[in-house]
Amino acid sequence: MSQHFVIIVAAGSGSRMSSDLPKQYMLLDAKPILMHTIDQFAKANVQANIILVISESMQAFWDEQCKEYAFHTSYQICYGGASRFQSVKNGLRYIQKNYELSPGDVIGVHDAARPLVSQTLIENLYQSCKPENPAIIPAVQSSNSVRLGSLKESKAVDRDQVWLVQTPQVFEASLFQEAYKQEEESTFTDDASVIEKMSNGLTIYPGDHKNIKITFKEDIAIAQYYLNNTI
């Protein structure tokens, strides 16, 4: 039976939130955002080993939150690096050190600040990741008009050709391991871009507009609205 893993990247500082507290530790529906995210994977029918990557400096604070909110969901923890790429790589190293990976195993990566990811989407992504489709990324089409360029010069782009990428992004383990042997580049903004550098075998899976990433303070209010009105 194949093994499933998810690396939840929670080592970021959340600078765009204009707060000293990283967004993943802020409260949503009376508990930290990160706890919502972990629970969605724990409840999904994929039996994923959850690898939480956090900043070492936030370990004590997270431990206190777990005590305060009686959070007992099972997960494993490792520390992040200087960038998202390095944090994911640390998560991968943790998996490699503690598990024997085999053909058919699947590794997913998810943003800690996407707490509304549905269990159905998680399950469908992992089920869709197969040798013939070794890299699956969820995305939604843009509903807005799109322009490409700078403030001074831009041109219209067909929005039907524009996809807004989400997480979790899931990959066949051997492909994922090979991709993360590469040196980090500034264009590596997500795991799909890392995979794409060495393989063009990415498959888009229809995402969910409610699977928002908490980036600004108003996003918390939007997420609360979705929770209040059932995901």
Rank of each mutant, 00 (worst) to 15 (best):
E64F: 00
L121V: 08
V106Y: 08
E100F: 07
N98A: 05
A113G: 02
E100P: 00
N49V: 09
N133G: 00
R84K: 13
E56A: 15
A139Y: 08
G81S: 10
L92V: 04
A70W: 00
D111V: 00
F71P: 01
R84D: 09
Q119F: 00
Y69E: 03
V140G: 09
E64K: 13
M35G: 06
G104A: 07
V106M: 08
I95F: 10
V140S: 10
Q76H: 15
E132P: 05
I38R: 01
E100W: 08
L92W: 06
Q127M: 10
I122T: 03
F71Q: 07
F61I: 13
N90P: 01
I107R: 01
K89N: 14
E68D: 13
I136C: 03
N90V: 14
G81W: 03
A112E: 09
V117R: 10
V117F: 07
I38N: 01
C129A: 12
N90G: 04
V117S: 10
S74M: 07
Q119H: 11
V117L: 06
D63E: 15
Y69C: 10
Q119V: 05
V53P: 01
Q127H: 14
C129T: 14
F61L: 12
D39K: 13
E68V: 10
P134N: 09
L52Q: 05
R93Q: 15
L101P: 01
A48P: 01
A60F: 13
I54G: 08
A113Q: 07
A70K: 08
A60Y: 12
V53G: 02
L92S: 09
K43T: 15
Q96Y: 00
N144G: 03
S128D: 11
Q65W: 03
L34T: 08
G81E: 09
S102N: 13
Y94Q: 04
N98Y: 13
P138M: 09
A82S: 14
F71R: 02
D63G: 11
I51Q: 12
L116P: 06
E132Y: 14
P103A: 13
L116S: 12
I107G: 01
S145P: 00
L116F: 09
F85E: 04
N124H: 14
E132Q: 15
A42I: 03
L92M: 12
R84P: 00
I38W: 05
I51T: 01
H72I: 11
A48Y: 04
V117W: 08
F61N: 03
S83N: 12
S143R: 09
L125A: 07
Y126M: 07
E64G: 05
F71N: 02
N90Y: 07
L52I: 13
R114A: 04
S118N: 05
S143A: 10
E123K: 10
L121W: 10
G104L: 04
Q76T: 06
V140L: 07
Q40P: 01
H36L: 03
M35L: 12
Y69S: 11
Q40V: 01
R114S: 15
M58H: 14
I77G: 01
Q127N: 13
I77N: 05
L34F: 05
N124C: 08
I51N: 02
F61Y: 11
H72A: 15
A135I: 12
P131G: 03
G104H: 02
C129Y: 02
E132D: 15
Y69Q: 04
A135L: 11
